[in-house]
Computed example of a mutant assay.
Amino acid sequence: MVSYKNPVIAAVQAAPVLFDLEKSLEKVKAYTKKAADKGADIVVFPESFLPAYPRGLNFGAVIGSRTDAGRKDFARYAKQSVAVPSRATEILGDIAKEHQIYLIIGVTERDAEWSDTTLYCTVLFFAPDGKLLGKHRKIKPTASERLIWGEGDGSTLPVFDTPFGKIGALICWENYMPLARAYMYTKGVQLYFAPTADARDSWQATMRHIAMEGRCFVIGVNQYVTKSMYPNDLASYDELETAPEEMCAGGSVIVDPLGNIIAGPVWGEEEILVAELDLDKITEAKYDFDPVGHYARNDIFQLYVNEKRQTPRAD
């Protein structure tokens, strides 16, 4: 049995400087330092932290029509998004290296290889030496998210082996996809990160269910966002007219492998949730239920996953 160190996890419930990549990177620096000062080995930020999860905006789109104002806001959003690799990823790597932590952060990724304009909802994983370990692209954006984000494929569903256990992530409502979760379990995920934009009470039940189902630690991390944080010079700012002042209340939470909440949930403020995880709890939890071991019934059920990278041309 591999021996892992018990990690200190820091889940950063905060908002970026919306639609401003440079200032948001400064906020990542500041919050990572605070987390590292609290002893964190792994620091995780919410879904699409860079440059923003554009809650409340529709970018001027209705069925059969788009507006010029919406196109301008989308172009602004795309320009502030994160190409991989880029100066922004170098800065993130430097932050991880400076504090000797694993940095896991949600970004809106701009396709740097094929189109330079197609965007993806992505999680980036950085090691303590600053290296970009890899990324996960959201495989199914939800509802109106599909107006702004493309779909990832099976080539970016990684689980990384670290001194603190095997780490991986699914984003927001991907966590409602049973086969996606099952795939994570088959890869041995022990620290399961769930960056999200869902602040509903029902999300808490999801985090606890996944922890019990996967017999893993689950770290759900969300933003805290108010309407006053939005730049008022957005071309389609009027789309926010009826939005409440508190647009995302948070609800970040850390759950152990038996579904017990060990930190959070925290609501209504920016906060860093910190917890030391006892990895022996995973083995203890799997004593009576192991989803890919003695409880799997592989003679009945088989999971097929297409991990092939999909490209716009056949090479």
Score class of each variant (00 low, 15 high):
G188R: 09
G165W: 09
G188K: 07
S228P: 06
A169P: 04
I210L: 14
V218A: 06
M229R: 11
G165N: 06
G214C: 09
H209V: 05
I167V: 14
G168S: 08
F217Q: 01
P178Q: 07
I167H: 03
V221Q: 00
F193N: 04
I210H: 12
I171A: 07
E174S: 09
D233R: 13
S228N: 14
A182M: 11
M229S: 08
M207N: 05
G220I: 02
A199Q: 08
A197D: 11
A194N: 13
A180Q: 15
G168F: 03
D153Y: 00
M212D: 01
Y224L: 01
D201F: 13
Y192W: 10
A205M: 11
P163L: 11
A194V: 14
E213T: 04
S228L: 11
E174V: 02
Y230W: 15
F160C: 04
Y185L: 07
R215D: 02
V189Y: 00
A180D: 11
K166N: 00
K166P: 01
R200Q: 10
S228Y: 13
R200C: 05
P158V: 09
T162G: 03
Y183F: 15
S202P: 04
Q223D: 07
A169S: 12
Y230T: 12
L179I: 04
Y230F: 15
K227N: 06
T156F: 02
T162Y: 10
A197Q: 13
N232H: 15
N175W: 13
P163S: 10
R181I: 06
Y224H: 14
M212G: 07
R215G: 10
D153S: 05
F217V: 04
T156I: 03
M212P: 00
A194H: 14
M229K: 14
R181H: 05
V159K: 03
D161F: 08
C172T: 04
F160L: 08
F193K: 07
N232F: 12
T156N: 01
A169K: 09
T206H: 13
C216Q: 03
G220R: 04
K227Q: 08
S155R: 00
S202I: 15
Y176M: 11
M207T: 10
V159R: 02
T162V: 08
Q223E: 14
Q190M: 15
E174Y: 12
I210Y: 10
R181W: 03
N175V: 08
A182C: 04
A199T: 14
C216H: 01
I219F: 01
D201E: 12
D161K: 12
F217C: 05
H209C: 04
T226H: 01
Q204D: 10
T162A: 06
T186R: 12
Q190A: 05
A180Y: 14
F164G: 02
L191N: 07
M177G: 06
W203Y: 12
W203E: 05
I167E: 01
V218L: 11
M177S: 08
D198N: 15
T156V: 06
T162M: 11
A180G: 10
V218P: 04
R215P: 00
Q204I: 15
E213Y: 10
L191M: 11
G165L: 04
M184G: 05
M229W: 05
M184Y: 05
R181Y: 03
M177N: 09
M177Y: 13
C172G: 06
G168V: 07
R200D: 06
E213H: 12
G220W: 01
